[in-house]
Design a protein around this nucleic acid. Sequence first.
DNA 1: TTGAAAGCGATACCAG
DNA 2: CTGGTATCGCTTTCAA
Lengths: 343, 343
Amino acid sequence: MPQRAKLKDIAKALNISITTVSRALNNKADINALTKERVLAKAKEIDYKPNNLAVSLRKSSTLNVVGVIIPDVKHNFFSKMLQGIMEQAQDLNYFVLVGESHHNSDREKKLIDDFSDYGVSGILLAPSKHSDFDKNLLPIIHKRIPVVVVDRMYDNYEGNFVNCNDFDGAYRATQHLLECGYKTIAHIGSSDSWSIGHERLKGYRAAIKDHGLILDENYIHICNFNNKEEGAEEGYKACHRLFSLKHPPSAIFSVTDDIAVGVYQYAKEKGMDIPRDLGIVGFSNAEVSQYLNPPLTTMEQFAQDMGREAVQYFYKALSANGQVFQKSFNPHLVLRSSTINLN
Amino acid sequence: MPQRAKLKDIAKALNISITTVSRALNNKADINALTKERVLAKAKEIDYKPNNLAVSLRKSSTLNVVGVIIPDVKHNFFSKMLQGIMEQAQDLNYFVLVGESHHNSDREKKLIDDFSDYGVSGILLAPSKHSDFDKNLLPIIHKRIPVVVVDRMYDNYEGNFVNCNDFDGAYRATQHLLECGYKTIAHIGSSDSWSIGHERLKGYRAAIKDHGLILDENYIHICNFNNKEEGAEEGYKACHRLFSLKHPPSAIFSVTDDIAVGVYQYAKEKGMDIPRDLGIVGFSNAEVSQYLNPPLTTMEQFAQDMGREAVQYFYKALSANGQVFQKSFNPHLVLRSSTINLN
DNA sequence: TTGAAAGCGATACCAG
DNA sequence: CTGGTATCGCTTTCAA
């Protein structure tokens, strides 16, 4: 690989000082127009590109890079989010470094360290399910570079975050089923330790209660899964239990669309008609939801907007003096054919 | 944001020289065990992290970063590929910088420039559809850092690449339809200027010919689309024309799964039975293909493996003396229910 | 076993 | 308007 041209090369070729070359290239005042022209021409000729390492080192600035940590790029929600992040980052002239935690807490921690060591200007973290930061680690990094937590929340977390109002979304999803006239509504949820699972369960509970129904704890089925495939499997298994109850549910609010896929599978096998025999509402508006048969009613989470906003918060945090930025997006009901008005 | 600790801080605290500290931290020989211990302890105490900019500058090495340029992260094929890339990169201790071209050639060029200026150690490029590199641009960068082209090919391109054997895949997809007993097979393809569209069309043609059928040019419908949504739309429109022919086709080989989605939509509207009235084979084994009703027979492209291999080639190219690495993956038929044996 | 000094490539200050 | 010199944080000879 040939050498990259440097200031010195231009200086030598034109018989002027490095300083002058630097000035010319950086559009400084105090430079002879002719000199500048000659420098620019030469730079182009030998294809000079500044060495970012040197520049950043000298200016003691970080590189224009923001590190993004997500559990799984293949997951529709995260790839949408990543797209939003990249768009906004590009607008602000930042590069995007990406790493996957695969819902593994150790890997996540290592990524945070590595990114931080690398010298990113900030970190956007979509925490893994099993993320177990005590209240210390995050703040420590936070002192050196801005961190924005996306999607999931930590208990008592006081830093920057952008998330989805999971409680509200779950409440409205459940409410929709109630308004359709479904009388017995089950919830297939996910591990309570995860803020998302936790909040959605709370929203479900609140909606049931507020509508004067009695909450049957048998109707709540919590499961564990780390990717789409496992989600579908768990959804299927959950149905097994729910439909062997004495009074099986007539509708299900599923914590994610992935799980709903498993529910569909079960329903199909048992010859149940969706939405007449069984109403379903998912969460995410994942790509798959529109292809299911019938298309799945679900909650849109605005992943892309969340990504954009996260970058903006990181950017503001760079210059903000300790100010903290937080926002919850309200999910929207996407009405499709897995629910129907029974009244 | 507080200052990052540096060698000097440790040196001062222990009253030794910076050189010694550096040696201790870098596991060099010629260092007193006790001194080393004290340095390590102090480093930990004040949370010392080397400044990568300075290290790389001094060693005049690039940062351990590989730049990845893809058209669209949300697209299942590219997110799978990206996942493969990230896994392999992590194993080799490289960071991954990601940018999206959105199938825009200018944006793609800018990304290549920016990444190159930034100082990445190499670039993995999944070219956009409208990528129009003359034979110059790519080689120019290639002289400075390794470039691996993934997925699509350029005419007469002589550099590193990893792709899918599109001709072969298309041939086998078409052959499968023929073996099922479908007599009139149409092809919905994509812009001929794109190597993928081109090769798949060629494969289709060859299969038809080799089986002694006469190729009706009316059965070939070429369309343009830049994302999944447009693909589905174009597939739908293509059907409009194909099924208004005097002798409509009984099967379709679709250049991508996205397009097949539009075909399904059309078939459903017209009450056609898939696979009896219409056999369909797609290409990609995108996530959606298994959720379509009936599930779509398609060609698996091994996107993740391609991603991994691309990183390995980049890595080899770093130290290879001009040696070029090339590989085509053979796609696999994934048999589902959109085709059936009619014999 | 340790330290002083040079230098990676670029920028900033100050003197001329 | 231009050039010399110090410096960013670190590694690497070369001497001691």
